[in-house]
Simulated assay, not measured.
Amino acid sequence: MVRIGAVTAVAVAGGSAAAGYLGLVTGALPLDVGVGRRSRPLGPRTMDIAAPRDVVFDVIAQPYLGRATRAVREKVRVLERGTDMVLAAHRTPVADGRLTATTVETVRFTRPERIDFRLVRGPVPAVTESFTLTPHGTGTRLVYEGELATDLWRAGQWWGNLVAPRWEATVAASLVAVRQEAERRSSLPRRP
């Protein structure tokens, strides 16, 4: 009898650990205890884009303020919209596409020079990010930078070290898409 109880306890503990891990990875079980908080930088990443600043701003803002394409709607869902800020859910494939992480963030727009993101719910307790747009020659220089914070001292730092590279890779892929679309739009003939 004791053996069955021990096996059951191990199975329950293992299942709970697996469920907790999946909850953290997908953002379904956010852990924000405010104890032992450690922060690390995200970026900076600089990208020069051969398009005017207003075009780059519009490309970044369109999924939030404008009409999004079907492909974008699968990744970004605006939950609440104000005049200069939205609350949006972002869906990102993780674990080689076997899981989907959902983060909820506020996105604030300061036209035409800045877009700020603040995590509300996700795999870590806190993330702040910004895209700063400055004129650069005939185009735009986009600078991405931010900060990712975790709780629980070294354990949280370990988790942040796992999350941050994936977070930055997702942002880097988004920036490439922004550059391609902004440069495509700026090469189109302008209508009078």
Rank of each mutant, 00 (worst) to 15 (best):
V124E: 00
V2A: 13
G160R: 00
H90P: 06
P52D: 12
I60N: 00
I4F: 08
R45I: 15
V78K: 00
E80I: 10
R114Q: 14
I60Q: 00
W159Y: 13
A17D: 05
G27L: 01
T110N: 08
V107A: 00
A61D: 06
Y144D: 10
L42G: 02
R108F: 09
G5D: 13
L65S: 06
V176F: 07
G14C: 05
T8Q: 05
F117T: 07
R77Y: 08
E113W: 13
A61Q: 02
E147G: 11
L148P: 03
R154M: 15
T110W: 10
R118P: 11
Y21G: 05
L65R: 02
E145D: 15
L119N: 00
T69F: 08
D54R: 03
D151P: 08
Y64S: 04
T140I: 07
H136D: 15
A50V: 11
A126V: 12
M47T: 15
V33S: 03
V107W: 00
V35T: 12
L79K: 02
A182T: 06
H90K: 08
T138S: 11
V76F: 05
P192L: 11
F57G: 02
R40H: 11
P44D: 04
L24F: 07
V143D: 04
D58P: 11
A173C: 11
R37W: 09
E129C: 11
A61Y: 03
G139M: 06
E105P: 06
M1H: 13
P189V: 10
F117P: 06
A50D: 12
E80V: 11
T128R: 03
F109P: 10
G20L: 04
V163G: 00
A89E: 04
E113T: 15
D116I: 12
A126P: 09
T46P: 06
A17S: 07
E129V: 09
L42M: 05
R81H: 08
V120M: 01
V12F: 06
Y144V: 12
S186I: 10
A169E: 11
A95K: 02
E113H: 15
A28W: 03
R154I: 15
G15E: 03
H136Q: 14
M47H: 07
E105H: 07
Q157P: 11
V7K: 01
P112D: 12
T106R: 01
Y64D: 05
T8I: 14
E129K: 03
P192E: 08
R45W: 08
K75P: 12
I49C: 02
T103C: 03
G43Q: 01
L31N: 04
A19K: 02
V178E: 01
G97Y: 07
G34Q: 04
R53L: 13
R77D: 09
G34M: 05
Q180K: 11
G66D: 04
A61L: 07
W159G: 05
P165I: 10
Y144Q: 06
K75V: 15
R3F: 14
A164M: 04
G137S: 08
V78Q: 00
G23Q: 01
R73H: 10
S186H: 10
L162E: 09
E168I: 10
P192R: 07
A126F: 14
A71E: 14
T103F: 02
E147F: 09
S130Y: 10
L142H: 03
P63T: 05
P125W: 03
W159Q: 04
R166P: 09
V56E: 00
A17R: 02
A68K: 02
V104S: 00
